[in-house]
Design a binder for these strands. Structure first.
Lengths: 352, 352
DNA sequence: TTCGCTTGCACAATCGATGGTGCAAAAACT
DNA sequence: AGTTTTTGCACCATCGATTGTGCAAGCGAA
């Protein structure tokens, strides 16, 4: 009597089996049956049959009819990075707890790809879109707007939709200050010994660089204007920046402000193959937190962005009625060297 | 004349505008129009209108009709881990290049959640499902089988569908050997100085533990049977295992085989707050690769699983006609301490 | 008995795209 | 001119669920 690879049961199958009409079956199965004054006993019969035949709703059909899908999208620049992957992890938890289905995709920081990706998701009638670290948030906005899709920017702000971002200026200020203070008074850091590597021409980098300059000036009294080496968000370009620097000056600075963990990987590549002692005096500040990064052989002061708070705030905003686009700053946290913080995985149980 | 937040254009709208029938419009827009002998000029007219009105296919409708969606699923245990996130990154590349839409979700290593997640994805008529590191692959298989969904296991094998996994035994053998050889002959490692931490009762852990035992015995001549401390895939449980060990023996072993980068985070937590010197003599082997992990203050030998090869193989297999379930081993790679390898992100361009 | 109200459900249109089938007009051939 | 073939497209059922509407049966009141 069992189905082998038989087609899945539909409300029409259950309709025949139960003797009720498809609409009644539908109402029973989607929970609106009380409102439709379906008899309790009828409902029970149908629910029993549904169970028996392993009925599951065809969500494409429902989505088509309702013109929303129950899918909630998260668009990341990339997956393979602890900042963004913790974003995904946190996001999933929130979406799941709302009974919807998370869909996480990446768009490679490519404006064109970002728009295409948004369009694809829209074609599936996703209900909401969380846009993380987009290179062109406003381009994505256009696409969403046209489709009437609720959306919100995270990590990098746009001008046309609400944004929830890290307080980059404060974070970078704290970080720069912590780097400088790390050198105490015996052998204080000189202005020309602290350099910033990484970042590109986006809002986050600009803020961080501004704070870096301001803090250097405030604490060290001066700020040579060659202190910043942009190198995009690419380990290899960052590597080349370090190599160029080293080539040119014969040594690395005593202290580094590194714009993101991705850029930090460029430093790793620079370290690879070179003697460890070369880096024994180095002090690094990194705008991003990576647990392994925190335990490198030299002091690494990190900034952890408050992903949980950002996602929470984003969910609040996205449900709200639309008002003039605003940007909300979430305070990040300074992380001392050799710290292993809890992350989103810690809420998962692992019983063995 | 432009639409504001007007509904999206459909083939019916274009049908009216072009004077052709909906089926003709459909054929033109989905590319089957030559097969249907639609005149070139008709096609051009419709394509022009589509462009003008920003037509995009409603993929839910198409999916409903075709009973497949163009979505390809990847089910991970968790996002927030470099191994799995690089899996996601690689997967996305492959799916995109096939013109489909990747959907990445995590299921928290919970068998129940795994099945529910698969069921949800099936309800959206996904075309294929890649099941990574499932706790209960065969449970997921049942669900897929019933729905006639092509699927494949990755990382952890199942008995009922093809599996592509890392060659855990060989990898762990290489790793154990590398750990032991790291100690040269002056002050060689003794059997009771090498311990394995982490893992649970899954295929990967069992293989690794078996290889660990065998290699210890082969190279060190003996293998005390208390050398393995399972602690699931949880940083905190692993932390407690280290604490218990330390409590009990007053020190850490000279050498550690750590079952995964997640367990390695347990070691980080143990390190936090304790003096760095405590670990200066430590040698660690970790079955997983994390670029930052590779540069810790003590030698960390790592194993990088060949994600690219695994995903490639999985795509080959999933398209093949079904045969008796087989498990394919992919050789991992030993990574010497202080190595910063290229990853999936390196194929992305970042011009700034 | 009749009117009116509630209960319980069926009917049918609809969401947007697809693809098998059929048929008129144009073209090719005899 | 008459017949066959080809061309070009329209028609319509269909995928599975949702939802506004309508209506018969049951029941109480008048």
């Amino acid at each position: 009597m069992d189905q082998r690879v038989k087609k899945k049961a539909t409300i029409y199958d259950l309709s025949v089996l139960s003797g009720s009409s498809p609409s009644t079956v539908s109402a029973v199965l989607n929970g609106t049956w009380r409102k439709r004054r379906i008899k309790e006993s009828t409902a029970q019969t149908i629910l029993g049959l549904a169970e028996l035949h392993q009925y599951t709703t065809n969500l494409q059909a429902r989505g088509l009819r309702r013109s929303r899908s129950g899918l909630v999208g998260l668009m990341l620049p990339v997956h393979d990075n602890r900042y963004f992957s913790s974003m995904a992890q946190t996001f999933e938890g929130h979406v799941r707890s709302r009974g919807q289905c998370p869909v996480v995709v990446s768009a490679s920081r490519d404006p064109e790809e970002e728009r295409r990706t948004a369009e694809t998701l829209i074609s599936y009638s996703i209900d909401q879109l969380f846009i993380v670290g987009a290179t062109d948030p406003d381009g994505v906005h256009e696409v969403c707007e046209l489709a009437g899709l609720r959306h919100i920017n995270i990590d990098l702000p746009g001008a046309k939709a609400h944004s929830v971002i890290s307080d980059n200026y404060q974070g970078a200020r704290m970080l720069t200050e912590a780097i400088i203070r790390h050198f105490g008074n015996d052998d204080p850091l000189r202005p020309d010994e602290l350099f910033l590597f990484g970042g590109r021409n986006d809002h986050a980098s600009r803020e961080r660089i501004a704070a870096f300059h301001a803090t250097k000036k405030a604490l060290l009294g001066a700020d040579p204007d060659d202190g910043v080496q942009s190198s995009g968000y690419s380990p290899d370009i960052t590597l080349r920046a370090f190599e160029a620097f080293y080539q040119c000056r014969g040594k690395l600075p005593r202290a580094l402000f590194i714009n993101s963990s991705i850029n930090m990987e460029g430093l790793l590549r620079f370290m690879a193959g070179r003697p460890a002692e070369m880096f024994s005096e180095l002090v690094v500040g990194c705008y991003d937190y990576d647990p392994f990064g925190s335990f490198l052989p030299f002091p690494v002061i990190m900034v952890r962005q408050n992903v949980e708070a950002m996602i929470t705030k984003a969910f609040e905003l996205i449900d709200e009625p639309p008002t003039a686009p605003q940007t909300f700053l979430i305070a990040p946290e300074l992380v001392q060297p050799r710290s292993a913080l809890k992350g989103p995985l810690d809420t998962l149980k692992d019983t063995d």
